[in-house]
Computed example of a mutant assay.
Amino acid sequence: MTTTDENDIATRLAAVRQRIRDAELTYGREPGSVALLAVSKRQPVSALRTALAEGQHAFGENYLQEGADKREALAAEAIEWHFVGAIQSNKTRAVAEGFDWVHTVDRLKIARRLSEQRPEGLPPLQCCLQVNVSGEASKSGAEPAAVRELAHAIAALPNIRLRGLMTLPEAVSEFDAQRAAFRRLREQQAELIDDGLALDTLSMGMSNDLEAAVAEGATMVRLGTAVFGPRPEKQP
C-alpha cells in the first residue's frame, strides 16, 4: 500500500515538473531542455526510492557520508549522483570516487585534486564551476573576474569535464532581481563559449526562483523541499 509520504512526494514531483514545463513554455525554451536535479539532503532512502518510482534518476547530495550510504543502499538502481555541497581538499577523493557530477568547484586546487583522484575506468567527472554572482561574503564560488582564467585551466585537466557554470545567488523575492543575477551567469558562460569552451550546462534555480532561472537559460534546476517536503532534523 502506498503511504501518505509516498503520495506526497509523487504529488510534489508532478507539480515541480509542471512548473518546469510551464516556465519552458512561457520563456520560449525548448520543451524538455531544463533538467530537474532532486536535492535529497537529509532525506531517507525510502524517499529516493519513491522518486525513482516516479521516474526521477538524478539526485544531489551535500554530505559525503550520507551520499555514500545512499549510494550503497541504492547500488542496484540507475542513478546519476551529483555532489552539491562545499568541497574542502580532504573531501576531493570521496567526491572523485563516488559521484558522477560535482557542481561546486570554485578553485583550481580542488579541480586538480578531483582530476588526479578520479579512478581509472570511470568516465570523466562532470563538473560545474561555481560562481559567486552576488558577491556575498558568506557564499562560496569564484569571483566573476577570475572565472575566465579558471574555466580555461579546469577545462584543460584530464579525468574531469567542465560542463558549465553554477550559482547560488543572493535570495531575493523580486522577479526582475532574480533574473538579473542569473543573467550575469548566462552572459559569463556565453563569453566562455565564445572563447572556445564547449559548455552546455547552467546549474541555477531553486524552489523560490525556478522560473527566473529558466527565463535566463538554466539547463538544470536544483530542488529539494519542493520535491521531498521539509527535511528531517539533522541528527546530532
Rank of each mutant, 00 (worst) to 15 (best):
L13F: 05
A58N: 09
A142S: 12
A38W: 08
R19W: 01
V131L: 11
L37A: 02
L185I: 06
D8I: 09
S46Y: 08
T104R: 07
G141L: 02
G121R: 09
E77H: 12
L199H: 09
A75P: 01
A145K: 12
V16Q: 01
V34Y: 03
T92K: 10
P230Y: 06
F83G: 09
M206K: 07
E97K: 11
S134V: 09
A94H: 07
A213T: 06
G164P: 01
P124E: 03
E54H: 15
A78K: 15
A137G: 00
R107S: 09
N7S: 07
P236W: 03
V105C: 05
Q65A: 12
T26R: 15
G224R: 00
S89Y: 03
P144D: 00
R113T: 02
A75D: 13
R118C: 08
A111K: 00
G135E: 07
S115M: 10
A10N: 11
E72C: 05
G28K: 12
L114T: 08
Q65I: 03
A153T: 08
R184V: 12
E77Y: 10
F175E: 11
G121A: 10
I79F: 10
L199C: 08
L52Y: 10
V133H: 07
N7G: 15
Y63M: 06
P123M: 07
A78Q: 14
K70C: 06
Q18A: 15
G98E: 12
E211C: 00
S140L: 10
E143I: 00
A137E: 13
V221A: 06
K41H: 08
C128G: 05
N7M: 06
A68E: 14
A51N: 03
T225C: 08
L162N: 01
Y63S: 02
G121C: 08
E30H: 11
G224P: 00
L202F: 01
T26C: 09
P44N: 00
K234R: 15
P236C: 00
S173I: 01
M166F: 09
R93W: 05
D5K: 14
R21G: 01
Q18K: 13
C128W: 03
L114H: 04
V172C: 05
R42I: 03
E174P: 02
